[in-house]
Measured scan of single mutants.
Amino acid sequence: MTVRVDGVDYEFSSLEEAVRFALKMAKSKGAEVQLHNGTFHVE
C-alpha cells in the first residue's frame, strides 16, 4: 500500500497502517484523502 503526500510516496505493509498515516497527514494539513485503485492521495 502506497500513501502519496506532496508527491512523496510512503510504503506500508498493511492497509491499516496506510490508512492511519493518510488520515493523520490529511488532518495535519487540513486536506482530504482520496483512494484511487488502492493508492491513497492526500491533497
Rank of each mutant, 00 (worst) to 15 (best):
S28Q: 14
S14N: 08
R20K: 10
E32F: 13
E32Q: 13
E17C: 15
F21H: 01
V33Q: 03
F21I: 01
M25W: 09
Q34Y: 15
L35G: 04
N37K: 08
L23D: 02
D9E: 09
G38F: 12
Y10L: 02
G7C: 15
L23W: 11
L35K: 04
T2W: 14
E11W: 14
F40W: 12
D6V: 02
M25Q: 03
S13N: 10
E16F: 12
V5R: 01
A26W: 10
E17N: 03
V8I: 11
G30H: 10
T39H: 14
H41P: 10
M1T: 11
K24D: 09
E32N: 13
L23T: 07
E11S: 12
K29L: 14
L35P: 03
V33H: 03
A26P: 01
E32V: 14
V19K: 10
V19P: 00
R20I: 09
L23G: 02
S13G: 09
E16K: 10
L23K: 07
G30T: 06
L15R: 11
H41S: 05
R4I: 06
R20T: 07
V5P: 01
V3W: 04
E32D: 10
V8D: 02
A22V: 05
V3G: 00
F21Q: 01
K27A: 14
F12V: 01
H41E: 11
H36E: 05
D9Y: 12
F12E: 00
T39K: 13
R20L: 09
M1Q: 05
G30N: 10
A18N: 00
D6P: 01
H36C: 15
R20P: 00
Q34T: 14
K24P: 00
D9V: 11
V19C: 15
F12P: 00
E11A: 12
E43Q: 11
D6L: 07
K29S: 11
F21T: 00
M1K: 06
V33F: 04
K29A: 09
V33S: 03
Y10D: 00
R4K: 06
G38V: 06
N37Q: 05
A26I: 08
E16Y: 12
F21A: 01
R4M: 04
R20M: 10
Y10F: 08
E32I: 14
G7K: 02
K27E: 13
G38D: 07
V42F: 07
R4L: 03
L35A: 04
M25I: 09
V42T: 07
F40Q: 10
K24Q: 12
V8Q: 07
G38Y: 10
G7A: 02
F40K: 08
L35C: 15
V33T: 02
M25C: 15
A26M: 10
Q34V: 14
V33R: 02
T2A: 04
T2R: 12
A26K: 05
N37I: 10
L15V: 12
D6R: 04
G30L: 07
K27D: 09
E32T: 14
M1A: 11
V19T: 06
G30A: 06
E16D: 09
E43F: 14
R20D: 05
V3R: 00
K27T: 12
V3Q: 00
V42C: 15
S28R: 12
A18Y: 02
V5A: 03
Y10W: 05
S14H: 03
E43V: 15
M1G: 06
L15D: 02
R4Y: 04
V3P: 00
R4P: 00
E17G: 03
S13W: 10
R4S: 06
K27H: 12
D6Y: 08
V33A: 05
A26V: 05
M25G: 01
M25F: 05
V3F: 04
E32S: 14
F12L: 02
A22D: 00
S28P: 03
G7Q: 03
L15A: 08
V19A: 07
V42P: 08
H36Y: 11
V8T: 06
N37L: 11
V42K: 06
G38H: 09
M1P: 08
K24W: 14
T39M: 14
V19M: 13
G38E: 05
V42Y: 06
R4N: 05
Y10K: 01
Q34D: 05
E17T: 03
D9T: 12
S14K: 03
F21D: 00
S28L: 14
T2D: 01
E11Y: 14
V42M: 05
M1I: 13
G30K: 08
A26F: 08
Q34N: 11
A26D: 02
E32H: 13
D6T: 02
E16N: 06
F21N: 00
V5Q: 01
A18T: 01
V3S: 00
K27Q: 13
L23F: 10
G30V: 05
E17P: 01
F40M: 12
E16M: 11
Q34L: 12
A18C: 12
G7N: 05
K29F: 13
M1E: 01
F40Y: 07
L23H: 08
V33N: 02
V8R: 09
H41A: 05
H41T: 08
F40G: 08
A22F: 08
R20H: 06
E43P: 08
V8M: 07
K29N: 09
E43Y: 13
L15C: 15
F40V: 11
F40C: 15
S28Y: 13
A22C: 15
G30Q: 06
F21V: 00
F12Y: 01
M25R: 02
F12H: 00
T2N: 05
G30C: 15
D6H: 05
S14V: 04
F12Q: 00
S14M: 02
V5W: 05
V19H: 09
V8L: 06
S13Q: 09
Y10N: 01
H41Q: 07
F40E: 09
R4W: 08
V33W: 05
R4H: 09
K29P: 10
D9C: 15
V3K: 00
A26Q: 04
E43I: 15
S28V: 14
M1C: 15
E43T: 14
M1S: 05
E11C: 15
H36K: 11
H41M: 08
Q34C: 15
S14C: 15
S28I: 14
G38A: 04
